[in-house]
Each structure stands twice: as C-alpha cells, then as structure tokens.
Write a protein that binds this DNA or RNA. Structure first.
Length: 221
DNA sequence: GGCCAGGTGTAAA
DNA sequence: TTTACACATGGC
C-alpha cells in the first residue's frame, strides 16, 4: 500500500469522518473559499455570519450592495477591499452564467473558475471539490505542511495536486475527507512546533524528522 | 509586540 | 520563468 493511502487510512481511523465543507449552500462555499485566502477560518466564520445576518449570502445581493457595507461585513478576514472586489466579480460571473447551480455544472468548472480574477488554483479547487462535487484535490498550506513534514514530499501546486491524483482513485468523498483530515491533523498536531505529542501518525513524523526534506526528501518538481 | 493565518495578482529581475 | 511585494485584520 502506498504511503499516501496509509496516511489517509490512519487519519480516518483516528479522527473519523469530517463532513466538510462547513456551509449551508454552494454559494456559501464559494464565498468562504475567497474569504479564507490567507486567513484563518475563525475570522472567516465571523464574516460569513455577518453576511448572512445582513441577508447578503447570495450573488445578487453581493453585486448590488455598496462596497462600504461589504467592507464592514468582511473586514475581519483581512484584505477586505480586494476580497470585496473578488466577491463582486465572482457574483457577476455566477449571475451571467444563469445562477450558482447552473454555473457549477459547467463541464470544466475548474477551468472556468481559474479565469475569474481573484480565484487562483487553491480557491478554484476548493469550490470545484466542495461546491461542484468534482474530484479535484485541494492543496493548501496545511496539505503542503503535512506532505512535507510527514512524508518528505515538496513541490509546486500542480505537482502536489498530481501526486494525490496519481496515488488515489478519483472520488469526491475521498478527496473531501482526506483534505479535511489533513487540515485537522495540521491544526491539532502540526503547528510551528517541531512535533507533535500524541500525533496519530507519529511513525511518519519520526521518519520525516530524521530526513531533511531539502536533501533527502522527495521533491516532485 | 511580533508572528501567523486554509492566496492571488502584478511588476521587476 | 522566478521572485518580491502589496493587500489588512484579528488571535495568540
């Protein structure tokens, strides 16, 4: 069995199913994916809550509402001027395509998302996987950290994503759970501290700590 | 008080 | 093609 499949099985056995993405609608997934760019989910939750309270969690409202109001709602997520523009651009595109569900059914939804200004590969993959339900692995800072530290693999976004795609069957539920489990592991056991008391995959931690990623680890690119 | 957080676009080298 | 930098707030 490959090390990556083993990691998934160990994490699933330890943490159980995560049931991601935490959202009440596909549009909320899209908004959350933009707002969490370089920002902790804790702060994103506040912004999402405010948007809902103000009745703004839909593309029409985002597009019509004045920027100052949106700034106030999402200020806690940082880069709030940029993110306001990104939400407006995304909302405009969604409406132009005939609504959220219709847009998400585009045969190349990931490619379409990447054309939208302000949506890079990670945001596109988050929306593709969790809103559109198309298996596209999300490579975020947690994924990179775990892969590098526990398995000794590093590389660019595309290389790491391909690594998961090559090693795993194309399955939406599997990709969702695996990504969520990586985040869970990173948050609870793999912060800036070297390691990792009680880590459920301590075997791999030990191995990764012995080998320098730069000299002995696997570099995909 | 300083570092960090589930990135992305742009411009310069 | 790669690297540096701006974007900005809140938690610990």
């Amino acid at each position: 069995m490959s090390v990556i499949r083993r990691l998934y099985m160990d994490l699933y056995a330890f943490f159980g199913p995560q049931g991601w993405w935490p959202a009440d609608s596909d549009f909320e997934v899209m908004v959350g994916a933009v707002l969490t760019q370089n920002m902790s989910w804790r702060n994103v939750e506040k912004a999402i809550s405010k948007l809902k309270t103000e009745g703004l969690m839909n593309p029409e409202a985002i597009l019509e509402t004045d920027r100052e109001t949106l700034h106030e709602c999402i200020r806690a997520t940082g880069f709030y001027r940029q993110k306001t523009e990104r939400l407006k651009i995304l909302s405009e595109r969604v409406i132009r395509e005939g609504g959220v569900e219709r847009f998400l059914k585009h045969p190349d939804i990931r490619g379409e998302l990447l054309k939208v200004k302000g949506i890079g590969p990670e945001t596109a993959d988050s929306i593709t996987l969790y809103a559109a339900g198309v298996p596209s692995f999300v490579v975020d800072a947690y994924t990179r950290r775990i892969l590098e530290r526990y398995i000794g693999v590093c590389g660019g976004y595309h290389e790491i994503r391909s690594f998961f795609h090559d090693e795993l069957p194309r399955d939406v539920s599997l990709y969702r759970e695996f990504h969520a489990l990586l985040v869970r592991l990173a948050k609870e056991y793999c912060g800036k501290k070297p390691l990792c008391s009680g880590c459920p995959v301590a075997r791999d931690c030990t191995r990764a700590n012995r080998t320098s990623t730069s000299s002995n680890g696997v570099c995909l690119s």
